[in-house]
Design a protein around this nucleic acid. Structure first.
Lengths: 375, 375
DNA sequence: CTGTTAGCGCTTTCAC
DNA sequence: GTGAAAGCGCTAACAG
């Protein structure tokens, strides 16, 4: 998961059946208008067929990479398509075919930077294959999410869906999607819900981060956990424990406090930690927003980061570079993750036996918020 | 777009004809599947016509709010539509009609929180009227923006476009859109490019902000300007001057430095200001990111905000609440602005004589980054 | 005020 | 390997 950020304010949450679509056309200069500025008639499949001396159906076959076309014809058709700058009319395709060429990305916190990035990645994948992406922001509520998604899927004739945390782990929803035979691809699902999608080894990433803290001399390292409903919270907590164990540090449960991925929860959790009789010298927050909150709480007490307390987060959202001090955090290739999730989904849509789970690498971003343990 | 996915690029940025689409369907519980989970056949306009005892065309008229239908028939058809939970097939509409039910939002910085919010608002408007939104991230480059947009518009048969700064002020583009008879709606355009869209009185907002600073005792108030290509930079600068004038403070050009809306530029600008022989006691940055950068620079020198220097920004992006100290800034109702821009555009699409410029109110968000002038 | 007839541009049969 | 015909679901055009 991703930690959603709860920045209110931000970003995007889209709506229904609207989506945002971008067209490759942008990258090209299709010749759709002459100098007079009057649009020229659109090139149709019929024109391509005539020009190539084949039937419409053959052109269609080439376009959709279907079999039963000789390599020679295929090449000839491709050349004409290219020359005429032909682009199939999406609506006609949808109407005539049985596919909708539409996939949706389901998410519940439209304003997180994390999701925006992911969305861009999914969009990359979709546009590359001429699929459309529908944004489906949901107010996550286990009670009716199944029926909501069901009507969305059926109404919009979705060809597949990309799931983001914590929706990735709603067993009832996953089961229903399977019944409806709608392929789904997950981003950072928990172990038990993996099938098609993308994951990063968050656990190892966190363990590495803890090792970094330990190398700076810290022994009392606290952890602010993420929202309980998110699988990521569990992974990150496990990584924290691994890191401590690897360093031979006795875990102290008093140093593990609950947060919920929001700035405010990080702020409150840090205050709690600092009030402890034997406070930590370093804090690992399960995401950047909470880390920012922790830094706020520390500063508010007149203490300094990292001189008095080191703080680190997870996600490397933009805020990590925009707060003072800049935040040490774990970077996941968010956009790439979205792209890969989209790619795997499209594979599965084409062939139910395709599509798999891909693992992407993380990177530790060491910045100014972590430093040597105070003397 | 439509149905396609829309965001081009970006995260949506995708590409082509893909977009993010969200469907109202989400909000409903269309009865598209029986208990067995098997989807039922989709209700078509023909079914509605038969059920209501009228022709398809009449149903179509009711659906599109066209004239020439008696109120009685209208009501009867509406009832059947409701009972059958009929929803027109978007692709069929597009294919048959001459409208694409697709508008695009043109922007150039896909990752800003500001744009994400705006996008959500535009999406709100689109989905409410069953329009699709295509996201069209552009790498803004005056040289070829006209042809890029032109091919996008023609290729995707856009019904209209929403422009965001600084694209709002590209005269050549606006002229071309007019030639192509594509309605356009702008968000925060400069005075000379206003016609349909949304604006806030940024100038007064800034003047008020300066008055706030003055009321705290500040006399040496600096300004970090925004990117020169953005109309907003000029407004905010004008507001700064107004504020100073109203307070009877002699402007000092040394206190006005160029920024470019980025964190780094704010950081650099603040450093420059602090190095001045007679440095300012307060800094008004033209946006929040630069204000954050200024705070970073100030902290780096071991100074404290607002004890040594007060800082304020503009936009009230999420970062304003997530940095320490929290940032005093001007809040614009970004999402609402997107919604209104979309609404006015749709009006103009329906009737070329409709749609206008609406002004929305701003609010000063007084937080912790501004305080009394140091003794 | 209302209905009938053609397609929109593409993909599906199903034939060759 | 390839093509001809028949729609997908809706709206435009032209009747009444």
């Amino acid at each position: 998961m991703a930690p959603q950020s709860s920045r209110a304010g931000n970003p995007r949450a889209p709506g229904v059946r609207d989506g945002a679509v971008a067209d490759d056309a942008l990258a090209e200069s299709a010749g759709f208008a002459d100098r007079t500025g009057r649009p020229m008639a659109r090139v149709r499949i019929e024109d391509v067929a005539a020009e190539a001396g084949v039937s419409m159906k053959t052109v269609s076959r080439v376009l959709n990479e279907e079999p039963n076309v000789s390599e020679a014809t295929r090449e000839r058709v491709r050349a004409v398509v290219e020359r005429l700058q032909y682009r199939p009319h999406p609506s006609a395709r949808v109407l005539a075919g049985r596919k909708s060429y539409l996939v949706a990305m389901l998410y519940d916190n439209p304003s997180s930077n994390y999701l925006m990035e992911v969305e861009l990645g999914v969009l990359d994948a979709c546009q590359a294959q001429h699929y459309n992406l529908m944004l489906a922001p949901l107010v996550y509520d286990a009670k009716d999410i199944v029926s909501k998604v069901e009507s969305l899927v059926l109404q919009s004739r979705l060809d597949g869906v990309v799931l983001t945390p914590p929706i990735t782990d709603d067993a009832a929803l996953l089961a229903r999607l399977d019944e409806l035979e709608i392929p789904w691809s997950s981003i950072s699902p928990t172990e038990s819900n993996r099938r098609i999608g993308v994951v990063v080894d968050e656990r190892s990433a966190v363990a590495e981060m803890i090792a970094h803290l330990v190398s700076l001399g810290h022994r009392r390292v606290a952890h602010i956990k993420g929202h309980a409903a998110h699988g990521a919270s569990a992974w990150r907590l496990a990584g924290y424990r691994d890191g401590l164990a690897q360093a031979g540090i006795e875990p102290d449960e008093a140093l593990v406090v609950q947060g919920e991925f929001s700035y405010d929860s990080g702020f409150a959790a840090a205050n709690h930690l600092l009030d402890l009789p034997d406070p930590p010298t370093a804090i690992f927050a399960a995401n950047d927003d909470m880390a920012a909150g922790a830094i706020g709480a520390i500063c508010e007490r007149g203490l300094s980061v990292p001189r008095h307390v080191s703080v680190c987060g997870f996600d490397d959202t933009p805020i990590a570079r925009h707060i003072y001090p800049t935040l040490t955090t774990v970077r996941q290739p968010t956009r790439e993750m979205g792209r890969l999730a989209g790619l795997e989904l499209l594979k599965a849509i084409r062939d139910r036996d395709e599509g798999g789970l891909v693992t992407v690498p993380y990177t530790l971003q060491l910045r100014r918020s972590t430093g040597p343990r105070p003397a």
